[in-house]
Design a protein around this nucleic acid. Sequence first.
DNA 1: TTTCGGATGTGATCTAAGTCATGATCGCGG
DNA 2: CCGCGATCATGACTTAGATCACATCCGAAA
Lengths: 228, 228
Amino acid sequence: MVRPPDLADVRRIGFFSPLAEDDAGRVARRLIARRYGSREFIIVEGERPAGFYVLRSGKARIFRTAPDGREQTFRLVSPGDTFAEVPVFDEGPNPATVEAIEESEAILVPTAVLDDVMREHPEVAHLILRHFSARLRSFTELVEQISLQTVQGRIARYLYQLAREEGVRTTEGIVVPREITQQDLASLVGSVREVVSRTLKVMEEDGIVQVRRKDIVICDVRSLSQLL
Amino acid sequence: MVRPPDLADVRRIGFFSPLAEDDAGRVARRLIARRYGSREFIIVEGERPAGFYVLRSGKARIFRTAPDGREQTFRLVSPGDTFAEVPVFDEGPNPATVEAIEESEAILVPTAVLDDVMREHPEVAHLILRHFSARLRSFTELVEQISLQTVQGRIARYLYQLAREEGVRTTEGIVVPREITQQDLASLVGSVREVVSRTLKVMEEDGIVQVRRKDIVICDVRSLSQLL
DNA sequence: TTTCGGATGTGATCTAAGTCATGATCGCGG
DNA sequence: CCGCGATCATGACTTAGATCACATCCGAAA
């Protein structure tokens, strides 16, 4: 049912790049692939993961839930992204829950495997340090966004980044496939569904974007960037 | 004017613990000590630091400023805390500004020194990974706090941690020296001075705390923890 | 097709918290 | 001991955004 982990899965992990072909092959045999249905939890806050993960396919989100039910998403996880590295370094519990937002496959890299890799390839520690640095930077951005920007600004930023990263130029504008619901977007920008709905509507009326069922068209990148 | 860096300064840096006496001594000679007046900037967002820093004495805060002037403090820096490590690992600019909030001394550890230490002591990389893990965890908390909790809850949490970390038990309650202004506290919890002032007043009226010129007394830890 | 559940659109409130304005207090340097 | 700048107190007002309550809408499964 799930294709067993192979070399390609090892290659997805950016900070494992120093591994030579045969090394990577050995590592591949020790990984564990798992499939998750849409809205299924991959890891849960407070538990102890057996290692870190890399997403092979699908899409997921990392979030926390408040006592009153509201949620804050920290980041979205796309194929090739890793998550739950922190608990393997400090032996603590998961700081957050990870949920597949569509049918997904994730690869578990057991702690022992990472330890071995790091022992045999000391450069890997440096690569992870760089990786963590990026993570810390994006947290800095997130905090600033949530604390200092308006909801409109945060939505605009999300759309803007989306356009840069996966946008396709067409005659109507930059088209990006839509992979998250308004509810997910709300949680990502730290707001609620209704506000996101209204905000998007305003942006549509201003001719900046066009939100459709399966995709989003950014018609006026200029005005969009004005909003951040 | 500034006492030159010595062995004690090297020992302040947690992740330099593997250094032996003589090693640490050699490192000490390559450090640079600097003194900063109250409200003086130690590093500025966007610039490139020459290394990372460790605070020797005083107190500082790490923050970002929005276009409209509002500020969000990410964390306070106390003696022994390090900052600006991220830029040395990814060679990027400072993600935030660091300001001394009282007369302070900071030690600069030039990038080359860190590189040398890491080369000679590979364990240091692991210690820094653990250090970064803690940093990432606290960012997770910060985001959750700002996004999901009320201002009162955030202030309560700050006071609560303060009580645990540096509180002294007396007959009137747990006394902590007060080292930041209401303005600083406001920036720390992502709010504005007036709201902090009012919130503290309510807490005083409820007999939970007592805010004075030079110190804060937590009279009712129980009720305080109820607020988070 | 029909149907049902997830996703969305939208008006009507509500409220925490930000803004503005103004005065009191305090501590330090002259 | 006086006066100025930093800090704090507090009332009045505004507002972004959260809540609540429904009305659709649409796609997949039966």
